[in-house]
């Protein structure tokens, strides 16, 4: 079983400004990876999705990339 990246690195709060981390969980088309691909817990997947959406709103991450 894959280990949760955030638990493994003791990250309790996923920041929308932490682009280095958020980009790891985006596909080449800038879509949010599914839980099956990220291997993180459901709780952290929800936090991750929220952080990515906040980051997109502020123009730090794209909504789509071709």
């Amino acid at each position: 079983m894959k280990q949760d990246y955030f638990s493994a690195n003791n990250i309790k709060h996923i920041d929308y400004k932490d682009l280095e981390i958020l980009k790891r969980f985006l596909t080449p088309n800038a879509r949010i990876m599914s839980r099956r691909r990220t291997g993180i817990t459901a709780k952290n997947q929800r936090k991750l999705a929220l952080a990515i959406k906040r980051s997109r709103f502020m123009g730090l991450l794209p909504y789509v990339a071709r």
Partner: peptide
């Protein structure tokens, strides 16, 4: 242009850069 007002925690929420997939 835009602003984002959110609830957060007191401490720093930025995690240091760690290599992913090669721990």
């Amino acid at each position: 242009i835009r602003f984002l007002l959110i609830k957060t925690v007191r401490g720093s929420t930025m995690s240091s850069k760690r290599p992913y997939g090669r721990d």
